[in-house]
Write a protein that binds this DNA or RNA. Structure first.
Lengths: 189, 189
DNA sequence: CCAGTGACCGAATTCGATTTATAGTCAGTC
DNA sequence: GACTGACTATAAATCGAATTCGGTCACTGG
């Protein structure tokens, strides 16, 4: 079962570097050192390959936040720690950023669908966490879905959009600080 | 000097409805009930016309916040009131939304440049206001430029992006509330 | 005179026919 | 029977012809 993994890794690298449209299955096969047909022994089609790559990316990031949740500190502090940790997920951000770029510039239908699916997924995930925190009385009651939406948009704006307007990317420090100062502390009691 | 204004109004309407690329000078002339050449007696070219339309839009919104600033209430409350008022600027939002759409979908160079110029302008404006508020001790010290950036992105995400993901637009009430609950109260002392 | 005009021009864009690239298949190989 | 790469059908890139539209300017009517 090593080849299946090699193929997915090769595909992920290629998607991250060149985007969905510009990666060819033949390229992926070459990178994974298998024949083109072998790719189709493990994955139904190109779109499926993208889905698996994205799924892995999201799962990685979810696990990171789940496994490091520390009940002995406040919800607010946990969120802050998670963000600091997630900011180190360069590869995942690279893939997501490349897909966002492709969504904007080429409007590849599969990528558009994928991005909005990822967004829905992440907003749902954050919503749940916020809902629990509200129930436990750790943050003020709020429209969790809308707040989750703003949260994600702000995070992406800082990580991805900032450097398109102001060449210099923000440091992890700056990003974590701003989110902390605004959204997180705004919600805390 | 009535014709000059007629032309600008016609252009603004057309830009708002059809976007920059899809409005033709001939259309604008017809709408303004003048000949095509007359447009060029008042405005150098199409891009200039867009610039004037956008300038007017920004000035309107700036004036609205300036004129209604109430020193007897807190900075935070003033911001909240401004947002509530600005949310009623449907026409301005329509023009901005159309330009954002065109930037994303057609990538018209003039529109891309215009959007980033508007963004810079607005971020600068908010930055100044935040800077003053920090000086006066009304809000906590922060990286004003980055906070202004997040502020604008969040506002646009709620007003423009939300309905592309979740068909139903948010009510003004919901938008103002979420911004209030997160960014504004997060910064307040 | 001169503010106003629309026919006119060339650059840019669209259109559509042809060529090229590639996603996915399958007969064959090791 | 896991794996392959030549093969096919279709989607995308290419490129020249046709069209559109921004901008000009010689003209007009008030």
């Amino acid at each position: 079962m090593n080849k299946k993994n090699d193929i997915l890794e090769a595909a992920t690298r290629s998607f991250s570097m060149f985007g969905y449209k510009a990666t060819t299955i033949e390229q992926v096969a070459k990178l994974a050192k298998v024949g083109k047909g072998t790719v189709y022994n493990f994955y139904d089609n190109k779109e499926q390959l993208l889905k698996e790559a994205v799924l892995l990316m999201i799962d990685d990031m979810k696990k990171e936040t789940e496994n490091n949740f520390d009940p002995s500190i406040s919800f607010m502090e946990n969120v802050h720690q998670s963000i600091v940790r997630l900011l180190n997920y360069r590869e995942q951000h690279l893939l997501f950023a490349k897909l966002l770029e492709e969504e904007r510039q080429l409007q590849t239908p599969e990528v558009i669908e994928m991005i909005s699916s990822i967004n829905r997924e992440i907003v749902m995930y954050i919503s749940e966490k916020l809902g629990l925190a509200v129930e436990r009385g750790e943050i003020r009651p709020c429209n969790v879905e809308v707040v989750a939406f703003v949260f994600l948009k702000s995070y992406l704006a800082l990580v991805v959009d900032w450097q398109t307007t102001y060449s210099e990317p923000l440091t992890q420090q700056e990003i974590a600080e701003v989110i902390q100062q605004t959204i997180i502390s705004g919600l805390s009691k």
